[in-house]
Design a protein around this nucleic acid. Structure first.
Lengths: 218, 218
DNA sequence: CGTTTAATTGAGGAAAGTCAAGTGAAGTGG
DNA sequence: CCACTTCACTTGACTTTCCTCAATTAAACG
């Protein structure tokens, strides 16, 4: 659990302090929201098991998936800016999260320099990740977007010690499409074409990457 | 200058401490890079005068404008995540920036709680802003993107005490297009159409918003 | 004031979206 | 545990939006 909740580089002492901080865990049913856009920001979360999506809504009701969080990844940073969550976080499958109260985390960051660094990195990485996604949405073709997405998930799986070649993606085609700025039909067609070209092997939500290099060259 | 470099809510004492931190200012010529993608991350900046764009490059060389910074806004946060800048920052006109050394800022954040809050907010706001841009790129039509962009710049101008109705945008149509995920021709056509519909009045880089409500309804 | 760079506009084409029908997978209740 | 209902996915035909290429005009910089 330690490894899952706050994976990177803290000393044992720091981990103990952090563990004291994590008051509780919570389980979230598939489709249920851990928090909603507009909710007061109290906690940062770490996905312990399962996976979640973050969703942002335009005033006219249109929704866009802004992120995917796999087990081990942080969640909730969208609340720091305005003391209120800017996105909603919805479970893609039955999941559990660790709860890290933000005020306590802030104090800890003032006590322990490496904890401060860790939080800053978390925030900074999120900024870079999102800038990368802006690049995907703004500059890549549909094929390139889907390929980039599969490679991203693959790499994140690898980092968590799972297979980079084969995984279950609990998002629907619609979620993927929303995240990638295209329709669910285009996602489906693109995956079918990739399959014909021998790049991937998809059966619904189960995805196997057959030709990694080929996918990188798309 | 105080107001420009770190506008929001610090006590006078804190401001003094912060000022001690801002070792220097720097001027950047139009077209010149304040920092480049890959440069080591040492400082955060605040635009003191002028304006800048941030640009991210794909490995194949394609570039995407990922942000616009007006006077008074923070710059350089894309370096925190990896100790290396993920974007390049290029001046859109002759500009000056305040330089805030990051290590010193970190220390100050451990001393002064409100400074820590301020930095967290800066990071958090950036995260929310970028998520909003993902939404723009992923869900809006060309017309809606241009309208949203003009309204965003207008609002940011207002917040800085300038006219919300009339301003100079030093970006080229190509920069705007890149930021909004469309071609420069489409930007140009869209602005022309807006002009015919009596929503805006543009003459090159000078933009006047004629019908704010109309623009919001696009 | 001339030269370079940026912006506008038009015509034609390509990529992705929409609508629609059919198939398959998954969750629910008897 | 199976049948049923619902939801998700795939595929095709057609439409729309935006992009590409090209020519012209306007603005900006040295």
């Amino acid at each position: 659990m330690r490894a899952l909740c706050m994976p990177q580089g803290l000393s044992p002492i720091e981990l103990t302090k952090l563990e004291a901080l994590i008051c509780s865990a919570r389980s979230v049913q598939r489709g249920e929201a851990l928090y909603r856009s507009g909710d007061r920001f109290d906690n940062i979360y770490a996905v312990r098991s399962g996976s979640m999506k973050t969703v942002m809504a335009h005033r006219d009701g249109r929704e866009q998936v802004t992120g995917l969080r796999l087990a081990g990844e942080a969640l909730g940073l969208d609340g720091i800016g305005e003391d209120v969550h800017a996105c909603s976080a919805v479970a893609l499958e039955d999941s559990t999260v660790c709860i890290v109260p933000y005020p306590a985390l802030k104090s800890l960051c003032r006590e322990i320099g490496s904890m401060q660094d860790r939080l800053h990195k978390l925030l900074g990485e999120q900024i870079v990740r999102e800038a990368g996604q802006m690049m995907v949405l703004g500059s890549l073709s549909a094929d390139e977007r889907v390929a980039a997405f599969l490679l991203d998930v693959s790499e994140r799986n690898a980092r968590r010690g799972y297979s980079s070649a084969e995984f279950n993606l609990r998002m629907t085609r619609e979620d993927m499409g929303s995240y990638l700025g295209m329709t669910l039909e285009t996602v489906s067609r693109t995956l079918s074409r990739f399959q014909k070209r021998g790049l991937v092997d998809t059966q619904g939500k189960h995805i196997r990457i057959v030709d990694l290099e080929g996918l990188q060259k798309v």
